[in-house]
Computed example of a mutant assay.
Amino acid sequence: MKAALIGLGMVAETHVRAIADAAGVTLAGVMSRDATRAQAFANRMASVIGTAPHVFPDLAAIAASDVDFVILCTPPDSRADIVATLVAAGKPILMEKPVERTAKAARAIVDICAAAGVPLGVVFQHRFRPDAMALHDLLASDGLGTLAAVQIDLPWWRPQSYYDEPGRGTYARDGGGVLITQAIHILDLALTFTGPVSRVQAMARTTALHRMEGEDFVTAGLDYASGAVGSLVATTASRPGGGDCITLHCANGSARLVHGRLTIDWADGTTENIGLSSETGGGADPMAFGHAWHQAAIEDFAAALRDGRNPTSTGAEALRIHVLIEAIIRSSTEGRAVEIAP
């Protein structure tokens, strides 16, 4: 299958490397609003894929081409018009998170794709981590028993220079701060284990360590629809930056996902380790990760198109993360608990 890449920012090279190793997927070309930047990027990628990829002059050229799907990596504030053009051309879309800046805008994108029957996937690559898949299998077999409590921690660090880039950490371009830009991945992964959150009570703040519009520190208490309770701490103000962690406390033991490793402390006192400790990306360096999980996400999306099924992570599923993030911010702003409708 042929894929086109739109948006050549920080994660674009990761996608090129992922496509280069992906089974059954080739890179048809790249596109950026800045033609000079696009050509420079294409020339640089020659060392990755053996030859400089084609540079599409504009979106219309991609819409008129024979590409099978498009990988969209632009900032969320530029999504709507691009999606409308691609949907009109019947091009399936696999987009980087978030879908848009707000839940309402994200739902509009999901709805336009659904109305036209155009597949929409979101790159939540952490779902393809071996440790995460092992925990999914364990939960599916009910090996851990009833879920009682959840801890979600994201102790990351970003220097001020990161937020000095125009638009970064703003509501106009990004839709907010640490929640929608960094924690969105671990929140998505956690919800695949726990099911939906029904109620939140939160505090979101911008610390003295950063000058930015959005939040760089969030703490929240969570009630789950299942009856479990939980906590969330997410920040980009934690030097030197550590790995994100999800801990599930269940009737038969506690399972902890961190740094690519699953550790299970069973109720009988034994401990089991699955996977090898490795950098899961992003704690201190925004690009401190490989491309294997992106490769798996791209291969899954291509296979879904071939098989006529939904990809592992759909645009509709991503809406639950947008709703949760907005509920957390609303709870902080209004100083009260916020209920989340099913």
Rank of each mutant, 00 (worst) to 15 (best):
G167A: 08
F124C: 15
V83N: 13
D66P: 11
M31V: 05
A134W: 00
H126R: 15
Q39D: 12
V99P: 14
A23P: 02
V150H: 00
Y163R: 06
D66N: 07
A64C: 09
A35I: 07
T85S: 15
P76C: 14
L86F: 09
A116N: 05
T74L: 14
L138G: 03
L120N: 11
P75R: 13
V48E: 14
P130Q: 01
D66H: 03
L72A: 13
P155Q: 02
R33T: 10
P92C: 07
Q160N: 04
A88W: 03
A134C: 04
T170W: 00
D164I: 04
A105F: 00
L120G: 08
A114S: 06
A88T: 06
H136E: 05
G117A: 00
M45A: 08
V123Y: 04
L154K: 10
P166S: 05
A80M: 12
G143Q: 08
C73K: 15
S78K: 15
A28D: 08
A132C: 12
A134T: 09
G29W: 11
D137F: 00
R168W: 04
Q125R: 15
S65D: 11
H126K: 14
C113R: 07
G50A: 05
V110R: 01
Q160R: 02
C113F: 02
L154C: 13
E96D: 15
F124G: 15
L139C: 06
M31H: 15
D142E: 06
S47L: 13
A28Y: 07
Q151M: 01
G50P: 02
S141G: 08
S47Q: 13
R127F: 03
A42E: 06
P57N: 13
Q39N: 11
V118A: 01
S141T: 15
A22E: 05
Q125I: 08
D142H: 04
D77F: 01
A28T: 06
V122E: 15
A148K: 09
A148Q: 08
Q151H: 04
L120W: 05
P75Y: 02
A35G: 06
L147V: 09
K97H: 10
V70I: 12
A40Y: 09
K97A: 14
W157V: 03
R168E: 10
A132I: 06
A149F: 04
G50R: 04
R44S: 11
I93S: 07
P75F: 04
A40W: 10
S78Y: 03
A134F: 00
Q160S: 02
F56P: 11
F128A: 12
M133H: 02
A46V: 04
F69Q: 09
A88P: 08
P130G: 03
K104N: 01
I109W: 04
R107I: 00
